[in-house]
Simulated scan of single mutants.
Amino acid sequence: MNRIIRIAAALALSAGLTFGAVAAQSASISGEVKKIDEGAGKITLKHGPAKSLGMEEPMTMVYRVKDPAMLKQVKVGDKVTFEAEEATSGYTVTKMDKAK
């Protein structure tokens, strides 16, 4: 009986980790840097659907950045993956990495 409980616990943990990884991937948005405005702390990104933000269609948008240092890590033309959130002042990029 103890072995069955351990197997069930391992399966539940495995399923939970898999779901968490899928949820994290769905929050990531693929895009391309079109413009950087360091003075205003903004970046223009052309991106595919952003389901985490309720955007079903590809579009080009201006985003604020949570950390201005993010703007120094990319240049116009770079492919990126990013996460963003909606705030009262608009959409804000909270995480951004160059695409691999």
Rank of each mutant, 00 (worst) to 15 (best):
G39M: 05
A21L: 14
M96F: 12
T44H: 15
A9S: 09
G39K: 07
A27R: 15
S14W: 14
Y91L: 12
D97T: 08
V65D: 03
V80N: 00
V80M: 04
A50N: 00
A50F: 06
E56Y: 11
R64S: 09
V76P: 09
K72Q: 14
H47Y: 08
Q25I: 01
F82S: 00
G20D: 00
V22S: 13
A23F: 13
R6A: 02
D97W: 10
V74L: 12
V76N: 08
Q73K: 15
G20K: 03
A27G: 02
K46Q: 13
E56S: 14
G16C: 11
K35G: 01
E32D: 10
A40V: 10
M61Q: 02
M1L: 07
V65N: 02
S89H: 14
A50I: 05
F19I: 03
M59P: 00
S28I: 10
L53H: 02
S52D: 00
S30L: 09
T44G: 07
A15C: 04
G77F: 09
F19P: 01
T94W: 06
I29N: 01
A27N: 14
V93N: 00
I7V: 09
A10P: 02
A10L: 03
K75M: 03
D97L: 08
V74D: 03
A50Y: 03
T94Y: 05
L45W: 15
A40T: 09
K46D: 03
P68G: 02
K75D: 04
K98G: 02
E83C: 13
Y63G: 03
I36K: 12
G31Y: 02
A23N: 01
A50T: 00
E56K: 15
D97P: 05
F82I: 00
N2R: 08
L53R: 14
I29K: 04
D37W: 07
G39N: 08
T92H: 01
